[in-house]
Design a protein around this nucleic acid. Structure first.
Length: 844
RNA sequence: GCCCGGGUGGUGGAAUGGUAGACACGGAGGGCUUAAACCCCUCUGAGGAGGAAACUCCUCGUGCGGGUUCAAGUCCCGCCCCGGGCACCA
């Protein structure tokens, strides 16, 4: 609440601060911002050694993909991290604040195809641009520790880690589908495939073809990745998303015997394995469905259905997984009968076997039992194909839907009848086990991590293929394997690695005979899965990092990044950390990389995501030139809670710059204010002093809970009060004012580091960022009177000033005595709720 | 489609279940100025009543419909709309 100054004390006649404070020292950020940036660098203010005596804390913003000059989205991300680094430093911590670049990736390769420039020189230039942008917004790092994905030293240890994973059985090869463009003769990223399934370069229809590729066995850690989420101080929504992504489910896997022409179970072939989370509904299984890619499709398709099945499979090949998972649209064209039948083991009935696009090979067994009574998609399918529907769970009487997925007594289910879902599940599973049809099974939606990329600009997978010895790891003394420089990029999109003779041909490390290299590179998520560990020991040439260094800094105390990374990056990094710990490369006890996570929202432009490809980027340079980096930082903090998405149009640069000007004028010239006084403190002096201490509490609390927009409001409110104080007829008390301004500057040092530093040096000839964060004096926080609100039936009827320590009975008496309240009372109150000193609610 | 968020004045937002709209932008009025800009001060959710005025008071109001509660922007249920992710963009 702002102070309500008595009218007479206010400045009435425009004398204003103009008259009191010199205008000569205008706020001109361009005169000192770059100077301070240079000084932080020269004075190594934010460099830190591993033997630094201060208590450790590790603040990390996700390392950026170097796309060139920063855009406002970057600025927002790195402002939050920078504020925290400066805040923690003022709190006495030795803060590890490193920066690096996620410098492998598709855009550099695309640029190479356009301009012929080698991705390395292109990427190095983009890193320079982004680095200078980060410096220009005042972000401070220990630049010595910089990690770049494409740095050969980092690649060397990345490949070395792959080898350790391979030796531990965590890396393996298997077939997996890729997007294949027949026109370009190349594999496409999902991003390069248009919504209609065509190649964005050639326009050809993209196919899904199978290719042998490398995987990391992340599923081995599925349970641990799920369990350990509990101990993380992460946003609940990110934890929920990871939980759902891992997708643990308990159910049963069992076999549906294949039926012969007479409807009897064949004993010469294995049954069709299906996975279900609802074994209790088995009696309602009226058909079964396989994924179109299931490896038994050929075997189980009858001759008369073969043409239809082949046509269907060709069609599905062109569909994306998202389209296939969708339950939108007509379902009648989304499946086809195989002509074969299987047997429902529960009922003994012969039921038809279909293919449908919504069943995926990647989940469960790639085949399902269909129970239309309890599953809406099965219901729709049954309707479209005229299949019987049998309810096996009785829906409530008022149920008017189709498939019923809720709980209820089992019906039409033989020996399960009458049981609830939980009981029936257990009973059905024991029955399946007892009769040798199957077993209970925990299934995860999580799939192994496909890390092969058919790209040039990535970290090569350190494998050699020998005709005689098979796949061989590249020996350590040959690492890193680095992509060659003498390559040309063709507009078709082919990776030059696969055709570069010098790269491709090598000798087998085992037998010495001619052999060939793996030409796929690693997913860039591999690079980003351990860079935060390398930061802790960035100069180590003997190992990726020492256990000691990791023990000193890890886990990251505060990780900051976009919510778009909520699943993939954060899950992969967690997996890497666990695997590295289990292999003894990282400390055994390091189970999680990021103790606390903050996910900030994105900056949108015209309602859409800001991105280079959309061409709607806003560059910070022009804004910094006009308003200064501090004003931009403050506007970022002020405009919206950090976790939420924000539209660029809503930024209030002018207002923030105006506020900084107000602080500047006040702080730069307090000594010149004409009517400064000394001696005895007036009521106003005491009041201002209390506000200073309340401000410390507010800002500190807001920083701790990432509520920067309200912290900015607190600064502004306080500054408004200070202005009124300075302009009051009595004038300001010199000591009170100086203390108030100094404290304001200290509190402003993390968000607006340049201006705070400049003013502090003017006032104290010292470095504000090395000063201690202010601490509030408890005795000055004591509140003597509170405004008690009085409600009648929950509606506000009066406000009464009461002593903070008022007893409930006295509060009640005061409330009832109020004339305003009396007017709304008829007869005796039914009930009175008293929450002294804040509230009394009278129920009439 | 599935998973995860979000809907509060003209705008961005604030509000441990307890005074809805702090702070800022925009707007209005006043001061300073020959004038303008800058700057300083005040007012500003909608509708209405009383008063010469300062001001006082009433009703409505947090996407829609229900519910829980003495009390709901906040908790629960069901809708509607908007945004993000969906495994090869990073």
């Amino acid at each position: 609440m702002p102070i309500r100054w008595p009218r007479a004390k206010r400045c009435q006649h425009g004398e204003g601060v103009v008259g009191l404070i010199s205008m000569a020292n205008g706020y001109l950020p361009s005169e000192f911002e770059t100077r301070w940036q240079q000084r932080w660098r020269d004075e190594r203010t934010y460099e830190i050694d591993n033997d630094d005596p201060r208590p450790s804390t590790y603040v990390l913003s996700m390392y950026p993909y170097p796309s060139g000059k920063a855009h406002i989205g970057h600025v927002r991300n790195y402002t939050f991290g920078d504020l925290l680094v400066r805040y923690r430093t003022m709190n006495g911590y030795g803060v590890l604040s490193p920066i690096g670049f996620d410098s492998f990736g598709l855009p550099a390769e695309n640029a190479a195809m356009k301009t012929g420039e080698h991705p390395r020189t292109y990427t190095d230039a983009r890193i320079e641009e982004l680095s200078s942008s980060l410096t220009a917004i005042g972000a401070v790092y220990d630049w010595r520790r910089m990690v770049k994905s494409h740095d050969p030293e980092y690649m060397k240890w990345g490949q070395w880690i792959f080898k350790q994973f391979y030796n531990a059985g965590l890396a393996y090869r298997a077939e997996a589908p890729v997007n294949w463009c027949p026109g370009c003769g190349t594999v496409l990223a999902n991003e390069q495939v248009n919504a209609d399934g065509t190649c964005d370069r050639s326009g050809d229809l993209v196919e899904r073809i199978n290719k042998v590729q490398w995987f990391y066995r992340i599923t081995q850690y599925a349970q641990e990745l799920l369990d350990d989420l509990d101990e993380l101080d992460w946003p609940q929504r990110v934890k929920t998303m990871q939980t759902n992504w891992i997708g643990r489910s308990e159910g049963a896997e069992f076999a549906l015997p294949i039926a012969d022409a007479d409807g009897n179970a064949r004993t010469d072939v294995a049954g069709l394995a299906v996975y279900t989370t609802r074994p209790d509904t088995g009696f309602g299984m009226t058909f079964a469905v396989m994924a179109p890619e299931h490896n038994r499709v050929d075997e189980l398709t009858t001759d008369d259905q073969r043409p239809a099945v082949e046509a269907f499979r060709a069609e599905v090949k062109e569909k994306s997984e998202i389209d296939r998972m969708s339950t939108d649209g007509p379902i009648d064209k989304r499946g086809v009968a195989t002509g074969s039948s299987v047997i429902n083991p529960f009922t003994g009935a012969t039921i038809p076997l279909f293919l449908a696009d919504y069943v995926l090979t990647t989940y469960g067994t790639g085949a399902i039992m269909a129970v239309p009574g309890q599953d809406q998609r099965d219901w729709d399918f049954a309707k479209a194909y005229d299949l019987p529907i049998v309810r096996t769970v009785a829906p409530p009487d008022d149920f008017d839907g189709e498939a019923f997925t809720g709980d209820g007594p089992a019906v039409n289910s033989g020996w399960l009848d009458g049981m609830g879902v939980v009981e029936a599940k257990a009973a059905a599973i024991s029955w399946l086990v007892d009769n040798n049809y199957g077993e209970s099974k925990i299934n995860f939606r999580l799939r192994d991590w496909l890390l092969s990329r058919q790209r040039f600009w990535g970290c090569p997978i350190p494998i050699i293929y020998c005709d005689d010895c098979g796949e061989q790891l590249v020996p350590d003394d040959q690492l890193p394997i680095v992509a060659p420089d003498d390559v040309t990029f063709e507009a078709t999109g082919k990776s030059p690695l696969a055709t570069h003779e010098g790269f491709l041909n090598t000798t087998c490390p085992e037998c010495g005979k001619p052999a060939t290299r793996e030409t796929d590179t690693m997913d860039t998520f591999v690079d980003s899965s351990w860079y935060f560990l390398r930061f802790a020991d960035a100069f180590n040439t003997d190992e990726p990092f020492s256990v000691e260094a990791i023990k000193r800094w890890l886990p990251v105390d505060q990780y900051i990044g976009g919510v778009e990374h909520a699943i993939l990056h954060l899950l992969y990094a967690r997996f890497y950390t666990k695997a590295l710990a289990d292999l003894g490369i990282a400390p055994k006890e390091l189970r999680e990389p990021f103790a606390r996570l903050f996910t900030q929202g994105m900056v949108r432009m015209g309602g859409g995501k800001m991105s280079k490809s959309k061409g709607n980027l806003v560059a910070p340079e022009a804004i910094i030139a006009e308003h200064g980096a501090d004003a931009l930082r403050l506007a970022i903090l002020q405009v919206k809670p950090p976790a939420e998405d924000v539209d660029w149009e809503d930024f209030q640069l002018d207002g923030c710059a105006r506020f900084l000007g107000r602080v500047w004028r006040l702080a730069a010239s307090t000594a010149d204010i004409k009517n400064r006084r000394s001696g005895v403190h007036t009521e106003a002096d005491v009041e201002i002093d209390k506000l200073v201490h309340r401000l410390i509490v507010r800002v500190t609390g807001d920083f701790e809970r990432w509520s920067y927009n309200t912290a900015v409001a607190a600064y502004m409110e306080f500054t408004n009060d200070l202005y009124r104080y300075v302009q009051s007829d009595d004038g300001p008390h010199a000591e009170v004012l100086d203390y108030a301004v100094d404290t304001l500057l200290l509190l402003l040092a993390p968000p607006v580091p340049h201006m705070a530093a400049e003013l502090w040096e003017m006032r104290h000839d010292a470095h504000i960022h090395l000063a201690a964060w202010p601490v509030a004096d408890e005795s000055k926080l004591v509140v003597e009177t509170e405004t008690m609100i009085v409600q009648v039936n929950g509606k506000l009827r009066d406000r009464i000033d009461v002593p903070a320590g008022i007893a409930d009975a006295d509060a009640e008496a005061l409330a009832l005595a109020s004339e305003k309240v009396q007017a709304f009372l008829e007869g005796e109150p039914k009930k009175i709720i008293v929450r002294a000193p804040k509230l009394v609610n009278i129920v009439a």
